[in-house]
């Protein structure tokens, strides 16, 4: 199952970043596909990006909301929130586990042999604060003399933007190098911090900081496709705890907003068929899925 998941992440990485003509054009992709929402966190200023980043776009719409309303346009983010809302309501955080390029980056780093550490649960709540304040409130409220705000999360936090856009664009466009300052240094430092943390702990950015993961997590209990726990079959043996990359106990908190639906508990740990996938209330038996996965891999 893990092999299939890594392939899924790689395919999504290439689908979301499908423009490989940038070394020739020296610029990012500017075609019509950028009307499509990237399901995972992927900076639209990445030269290969063929989709828009919902977190970046939402901030851009909110920071310019006064200007849009004054000019008679009602660009208040309904298109962007509608797009990610549909994704959240249908598959929840399956996107984090199966389709997010920055999740893949962290997972690959975590494979580097080293001592591994857990992440205090208290830090899991931070991502909701990032979603609320850095993505919504601050871009909306703190404005300059022209009534324009800043994309706070993108500008001061997002390490995915630095990795996928900041570094490549500076390499691609030498003119940009003369404008680099403390902001760039700050973003490189944050990227380094999250990269080192990813070696030592599993998916630290997803668990503590990602506003998109926080949004999708809100739907984990109610999404169309979700994990289902059969309490009668569960023996509370704890095998699922040991394989979980985000350190949740699915038998105690089924539908946890932290679950990235990697399915390791279902396919690698549970021997009692207690965990299965369900679609809109109808279970897909886990054993048949595992058997199929084993046959394929």
């Amino acid at each position: 199952m893990e092999t299939i998941r890594t392939w899924s992440q790689a395919i999504w990485l290439l689908l979301i970043n499908g423009f490989w003509g940038f070394p020739v054009t020296g610029n990012l992709y500017q075609g019509p596909l950028k009307i499509i929402c990237s399901p995972g966190l992927n900076c639209y200023s990445c030269p290969a990006a063929t989709t828009y980043c919902p977190i970046g776009s939402l901030q851009q719409l909110l920071l310019g909301i006064r200007f849009s309303l004054q000019t008679g346009n009602y660009y208040i983010g309904t298109f962007v929130v509608g797009s990610i809302g549909i994704l959240g309501a249908t598959v929840g955080r399956f996107i984090c586990g199966w389709a997010c390029p920055f999740g893949l980056y962290q997972e690959l780093l975590h494979r580097i042999p080293s001592k591994k550490y857990s992440i205090p649960r208290l830090l899991n709540g931070l991502k909701y604060l990032f979603l609320l304040f850095f993505v919504i409130v601050l871009p909306l409220v703190l404005v300059d003399d022209f009534g324009l705000g800043k994309p706070w999360f993108c500008k001061y936090v997002c390490p995915a933007g630095t990795l996928e856009a900041g570094i490549p664009m500076v390499l691609l466009q030498p003119d940009l190098r003369s404008t680099l300052g403390w902001l760039y240094v700050n973003k490189i430092a944050l990227l380094l911090m999250f990269s080192i943390w990813s070696v030592l702990a599993s998916r630290p950015f997803c668990r503590t900081t990602c506003p998109l993961g926080a949004f999708y997590g809100l739907f984990n209990r109610v999404s169309l496709v979700k994990l289902r726990l059969d309490r009668e079959a569960c023996t509370s043996c704890g095998a699922c705890h040991r394989v979980c990359p985000v350190e949740i106990r699915i038998n105690e908190t089924p539908g946890s907003s932290e679950c990235i639906n990697c399915l390791r508990c279902m396919s690698e740990a549970c021997q009692f068929d207690a965990i299965s996938l369900e679609i809109a209330g109808f279970p897909l038996k886990s054993r048949s899925i595992v058997t199929k996965a084993n046959v394929r891999s």
Partner: peptide
């Protein structure tokens, strides 16, 4: 959204 996504977000890249 398309207009924004087509241009380089300087703030986003630091």
């Amino acid at each position: 959204v398309l207009e924004q996504a087509k241009s380089i977000c300087l703030a986003c890249i630091g």
